[in-house]
Design a protein around this nucleic acid. Structure first.
Lengths: 212, 212
DNA sequence: TTACTTTTGTGAAGAATTTCACAATACAGT
DNA sequence: ACTGTATTGTGAAATTCTTCACAAAAGTAA
């Protein structure tokens, strides 16, 4: 019914997935059943209904969910019905890839500052942005009201910048550095660890072969 | 004891994390306790022991685990005690970032081919590689014995290339395209979805504020 | 050898998540 | 209005994952 405490990580991932499916629906004004949504997300209809039920009941029995309504509701639940002010820390290949990732800006994640400690890079123009020195970090974060920080730098600098981001009042961190960041529990961190993903893959392949 | 069926996704992620921690240990010949390992991975000592116990018992009571031995064992479990032949599909920003990611090659993931459908890109040299046309895909995958494919292309081309990869005999797929791939269950797929990560982050921030 | 300390490996308990199953309800057709 | 069909919302059951707690080592020191 109400927004109960503790929505699990897996539920959130599925919600994000449902939203992605709904965005693929051209059918304006139509409806979608939990069954259809499940088919697109390799989960079950019951799981879809359970996930959605944590936030209220916005389906119609016998009919399903209004695509438009559900999409709007999911956007609001996931916090993407607004825009976020993001700073990118690390102007390497990964930083560049993210900066130019189309889905990034199109979903309201506005990159308003870029930092890198490499003197070669400081001052470089990236689209409408200029790469800044980390010396300016706190000042810029405050002046531009940055809410999210993306850490796309090597492991050794990541912990320090995470701390500085938290102290500067940032609300969340997307971390690409392959270390576990030590931050206060009230600041959410999401990790993207490419090595871990590859290892999960080779694990599954290796295991699969052992079974055969 | 023995490698039992069905190791959970979360266990695999933790194993990968333990390995990362152990690689940071300069201490050659030393030992490490489940307690220490847990502290580095924001989990508990009992969890570490349970995770490891799925694959045998390679600790010494009263002493802990031999760093060297455990590291080797984890490498073997995760399948990174060997090298993997990888093809990159999509020579955009994300593809480039991955191609140049140092941890990539250093862990035995050898990129042996790059494909892109953009005629502008075909023929470009990337380090020791040349970007190839997807027309050559099946031929090259077979000739070079490619085992893993990294899909770093837009959503609309991803499903087709996934299918072609599976038909060509590829054993696993790392997917950066924001769609759920439809492949036979015996071919493992790992998804890296940047939008999903950002949404998980904004969800947590939004939720946190509602509680306060 | 014996006592003491440490830390593993693991059954059992507890917690969390997923699936089941069905009453409630919404609409369509007649 | 009534019958039939579809589909939600949700307790309860089943399953999976995590934590607890402690006996079984393994080393150390006297």
């Amino acid at each position: 019914m109400f927004v109960s405490r503790k929505i699990s990580e897996s539920t959130v991932r599925r919600l994000s997935h449902y939203l992605r499916s709904l965005e693929g629906f051209p059918d304006i004004g139509g409806t979608v059943s939990s069954e259809e949504l499940a088919a697109r997300g390799q989960t079950t209809a019951a799981q879809v209904r359970k996930d959605l039920s944590h936030f209220g009941s916005f389906g119609k029995r016998g009919l399903g969910y209004s695509v438009d309504q559900l999409r709007d509701r999911l956007r609001s639940i996931l916090g993407v019905d607004r825009s976020w002010r993001v700073a990118l820390v690390g102007a390497g290949r990964i930083g560049l890839a993210l900066f130019e990732y189309p889905a990034f800006r199109s979903r309201g994640y506005d990159c308003v500052a870029i930092f890198d400690s490499d003197p070669e890079k400081i001052g470089q123009a990236w689209a409408d942005q200029v790469v800044r020195s980390p010396d300016e970090f706190e000042k810029v974060i405050n002046e531009l009201d940055v809410e999210l920080v993306i850490l796309a730098l090597p492991a050794d600098g990541a912990q320090e910048m995470a701390m500085r981001a938290v102290d500067a009042g940032v609300q969340g961190i997307l971390n690409f550095a392959p270390i576990r960041l030590n931050v206060p529990p009230e600041v959410p961190v999401e990790d993207v660890n490419l090595v871990m993903e590859l290892e999960a893959l080779s694990f599954q392949i290796t295991q699969g072969e052992q079974d055969a």
